[in-house]
Lab assay of single mutants.
Amino acid sequence: WKITIYDQENFQGKRMEFTSSCPNVSERSFDNVRSLKVESGAWIGYEHTSFCGQQFILERGEYPRWDAWSGSNAYHIERLMSFRPICSA
């Protein structure tokens, strides 16, 4: 599993790669995730830290803005603060 997060939209700004769970992006000096690329595996992104709040399934691909992973939710969530890989047995 591999995911790359960015602190600006369209894959700009600070970037960081992960191959395992991140319970709080702010502990990695990110205020928020504004864009991301899922390089391999599937991940679950969460609205809040500690894997809480609205969940987003993140499959392999590029997500240049928050609405790319938020989709058409009843209330739009511009925040992604934690994530972890989906492990299959």
Rank of each mutant, 00 (worst) to 15 (best):
P64C: 07
S82F: 00
D31S: 10
S50H: 15
L80S: 03
F56G: 03
Q54G: 10
D7V: 01
W43K: 01
E62H: 07
K37V: 11
N24D: 15
T4N: 07
R28G: 10
Y6L: 00
K37N: 05
N32Y: 13
V33F: 03
D7M: 04
N32F: 11
T19D: 05
W43Y: 02
F56V: 14
V38Y: 05
D31Y: 08
C52V: 13
R28K: 09
F30R: 00
G45I: 12
I77S: 14
G61C: 03
W69L: 12
W69P: 06
Q8N: 06
G13F: 01
G41V: 00
Y6P: 00
I77Q: 14
K37M: 07
C52L: 14
S26D: 11
T49I: 12
T4K: 05
N10A: 08
E59L: 07
N24I: 02
K37Y: 04
L58K: 00
L58C: 03
A68E: 07
F56S: 12
N10Q: 09
N73Y: 11
E47K: 00
C87H: 15
I5P: 00
S21G: 10
C22N: 03
E59D: 05
F18C: 08
Y46N: 02
T19E: 06
S72M: 14
S40T: 09
R84A: 11
E78Y: 11
V25D: 06
N10E: 09
F18M: 07
W66T: 10
E17H: 09
S35H: 01
I57R: 14
E17Q: 12
C87P: 15
G53K: 01
F83C: 02
A68N: 15
E9D: 06
C22F: 04
S50D: 14
G13H: 02
D7P: 04
R28W: 09
Y6R: 00
I77A: 13
F11V: 00
H76P: 11
R15S: 14
V38F: 03
A42R: 15
N10K: 09
Q12R: 11
K2C: 06
S20P: 01
W1I: 12
S26F: 10
Y75E: 15
A42L: 12
K37L: 05
F18K: 02
F51W: 05
G13M: 00
D67A: 11
P23I: 07
N10C: 06
W66M: 13
L58A: 00
F18Y: 14
N73F: 06
E59R: 15
A89D: 09
G71Q: 14
K2W: 03
E9V: 07
G45K: 03
F56A: 12
M81G: 07
G61T: 00
Y75C: 13
E39H: 15
W43P: 00
L80C: 06
Y75G: 15
I44R: 05
L80I: 15
F51V: 01
K37D: 02
T19R: 07
Y46L: 02
H48T: 04
G61R: 04
L36K: 03
K2R: 05
W66P: 14
I86G: 07
M16E: 12
R84G: 02
V25Y: 04
D7C: 04
A89Y: 06
T4F: 12
E39D: 11
R34T: 02
S40R: 12
G61K: 04
E47H: 05
I5E: 02
E39S: 11
E78N: 13
R34A: 08
S72V: 12
